[in-house]
Simulated scan of single mutants.
Amino acid sequence: MKLLALFATALLLFTFQAQAQIYGPYDDYGDYGYGDPYGSYEPPPDYGEPMPEHRPRTRSGGGTIVIATREHTLVFITPRGEQLAYPIAVGREGKQWYGTTHVVSKRKHPEWRPTASMRRKNPRLPDVVKPGPSNPLGTRAIYLADGLLRIHGTNDPSSIGTNASSGCFRMYRDDVEELYEMVRTGTRVIVQR
C-alpha cells in the first residue's frame, strides 16, 4: 500500500512537470552560472516569490526521505506517516547516485566549496562562495553520507524538475527551508532510480 501511495504521488508530480526543461551535458561549473566567478550575481527575479502549492499530502511510512530520481521528486515521510512531496533537480547523466544513506548534518546559510574536479575544470572558481544570492547551495543544506552529497536550495530555481546538478538534490528555497526544520540528523534517505 505504501508503494502504491508513493507511486501515485510520483505519477501526479511527473504529470505536472511534463514540460520541464532538460539540460544537455555541460561542464561541472556551468550549472552554477560562473562565467566570472568573482563577479556579482543577482538572484533570479522570482527567487523570493512564494511557490505554488505542489505538495500532495497522504498517509504512510515514517521518518524517511525517499528520492525518486526519474520523477524529480523528494518525498519526506514524517514520523506520523504524513507524506510531503517536493519537486527537485537531480544529477546530470553520469553524476547520479542511488542507494540508502542518512542525514549526517545540516547547515543554515552554508558556504559552497567547489570540489577538486570542478576546480581542475575551471581554475577560476573561488575556493569558497560565502552565503548570499550567488551561493549555489541556497539558504539551507542537508548533508548526506560522507558530507559531499547534499539536499540543498539553489540560486537557479529554473533548474528544478531537471537533471542539472553535479549529483546533489536541489530544491526551491521555501521547500528546503521547510524540509530543513523537519528533518533530523540520522534520518534515513533512500535514493531510487
Results as ranks from 00 to 15, higher is better:
40 S>D: 12
45 P>I: 00
156 D>I: 08
149 L>H: 14
59 R>S: 13
147 G>K: 09
116 A>K: 14
57 R>I: 14
59 R>Y: 15
161 G>D: 03
53 E>R: 10
129 V>F: 03
87 P>L: 04
38 Y>K: 12
173 R>S: 08
156 D>C: 02
76 F>N: 01
38 Y>V: 09
151 I>D: 00
62 G>C: 12
129 V>R: 06
80 R>C: 03
39 G>E: 06
180 Y>A: 01
181 E>A: 14
37 P>T: 10
82 E>Y: 09
109 H>P: 00
77 I>Y: 10
52 P>I: 05
40 S>E: 13
126 P>T: 10
63 G>Q: 12
105 S>L: 12
37 P>F: 09
53 E>M: 11
169 F>L: 12
49 E>T: 06
65 I>D: 00
149 L>P: 02
101 T>C: 09
151 I>E: 00
79 P>L: 08
61 G>M: 11
119 R>V: 11
140 R>S: 02
90 V>F: 02
83 Q>A: 11
56 P>F: 07
74 L>V: 12
178 E>F: 14
115 T>Y: 06
91 G>C: 08
158 S>Y: 12
85 A>Q: 07
34 Y>S: 12
136 P>Q: 01
168 C>G: 06
62 G>F: 07
137 L>F: 08
169 F>M: 10
138 G>E: 02
42 E>Y: 13
60 S>K: 05
72 H>M: 06
78 T>H: 11
133 P>N: 07
110 P>M: 04
79 P>A: 03
142 I>N: 07
43 P>W: 06
169 F>K: 03
139 T>Y: 04
56 P>T: 04
100 T>D: 11
97 W>C: 03
159 S>W: 02
141 A>R: 03
181 E>W: 09
166 S>L: 13
169 F>R: 03
78 T>Q: 08
170 R>G: 00
79 P>E: 11
84 L>W: 12
152 H>C: 05
61 G>N: 13
73 T>R: 15
55 R>G: 14
86 Y>V: 07
93 E>Q: 13
55 R>P: 00
129 V>W: 00
117 S>C: 01
102 H>N: 12
91 G>K: 05
165 S>H: 03
49 E>C: 06
146 D>N: 13
61 G>S: 14
162 T>H: 10
147 G>T: 10
95 K>E: 11
137 L>G: 05
83 Q>C: 13
61 G>Q: 11
112 W>D: 04
169 F>C: 11
175 D>E: 03
180 Y>R: 01
102 H>P: 00
47 Y>N: 01
147 G>I: 08
158 S>G: 10
162 T>Y: 03
